[in-house]
Design a protein around this nucleic acid. Structure first.
Lengths: 198, 198
DNA sequence: CCAGACAGATAGTGCTACTATCCGATAGTG
DNA sequence: CACTATCGGATAGTAGCACTATCTGTCTGG
């Protein structure tokens, strides 16, 4: 609490007296937002601070707020290990083949490229069909986010959901994916013995 | 290197002499796997160790190896903050409405429930249509993973891709989602001013 | 008018993922 | 056969992050 204020991600309360401070609904709301970003979104305190600041910048264009949210997700524990150029190239080219208009500084390129490198490290060269399935799913999710956004009333709500949805959408999808995976693998391996000696 | 061996996630090399050790292709491969899991997958060293151990357990059923991989992803920095029962219930019920057969200990339930709680904290009650879009995308991705698995030759490769795909699929999807989002928001806000005074 | 609570500041803690240093043995070299 | 440079193994130390505890002074409510 004090810590969060000190770190600059929670505004000071209104002083009702020289040593008394009042916290209102806005503060409670803000704390919940911070905790969701930190605990569920997995953001670092520094990244959260950036996001909060972008959210509070009333005059910034929405696209800029969004950009900050996207970059915030890249920071946590992936600052090291740059992906190979080949993988970055592959992702960038692939994105364009999907008809997506993306900029080179989109952190998603690096994230996806790193994953591609990792798969390659174990000898799996992801075919276009594999990437395509992921891309189609990503597009569907992005469209759902957009629909959710358009159902909101005030611009403040839109900005907030845009940021929080960008960040919490990942764990939401990841969780559902694990559920879907369990179902799918269940059908694949009724009860199996692994790696029987050929 | 030494550190990884000490932590038990890298086997010792073959001793060519009392104080000389030989590292072969298997070791190089293993190191690459470890680094992919750690850096790209965002797993902790302890979680990686569990995954590696499961991968090396030749007699374990594939489903068990998979279960370990799923749980490993839940550990990193989300041990705290349990989701609300309501959200867990919602996800569990929803999964079943999708026709998925899932167990209560699937860590995906908690992950998705936490995300739901976070969205709720900012006042967004995710409608079934929103969840449905995410679920459909998750199912599509899980199916693509399965197809990729079935294209492989040896059971060892299958186990490895299953684990690595489970873990690296998240960042791969997250990256692509960010690319799709950029494209989608571009069409939404050509050039906008945010939160104009009503 | 005084006990207790509160704000603010400073210092300390616990955890994780490494990294540096030391030591003793041995393998290669002249 | 001696010497040195290197390697493996063990131990201790470091750095960053997210807090948490304590201390101090001031003010408020009974």
């Amino acid at each position: 609490m004090k810590y969060y204020q000190r770190e600059g991600l929670l505004p000071e309360g209104v002083r009702s007296a020289p040593n008394q401070v009042d916290y209102g609904d806005a503060h409670v709301h803000r704390v919940r937002l911070i905790r969701a970003l930190l605990e569920t979104g997995g953001l670092s305190v520094a990244a959260t601070k950036d996001v909060i600041a972008a959210l509070d910048a009333e005059d910034a264009p929405l696209a800029e707020t969004f950009r900050v949210a996207q970059h915030a997700m890249a920071t946590p524990r992936t600052a090291d290990s740059t992906p190979s150029d080949a993988a970055r190239q592959r992702i960038a080219t692939f994105a364009r083949s999907q008809g997506w208009e993306v900029t080179d500084d989109n952190p998603g390129i690096d994230a996806a490229a790193r994953a591609l490198d990792g798969l390659r490290a174990i000898g799996f060269e992801a075919p276009d069909s594999y990437l395509g399935a992921y891309a189609a799913a990503a597009a569907a999710v992005a469209a759902a986010d957009l629909r959710a956004l358009s159902s909101l009333a005030t611009p403040d709500q839109v900005a907030e959901l845009m940021v929080v949805g960008t960040i919490l959408g990942d764990p939401l999808f990841a969780g559902l994916r694990r559920l879907a995976q369990q179902d799918v693998t269940r059908t694949l391996f009724p009860t199996d013995a692994k790696r029987a000696p050929s």
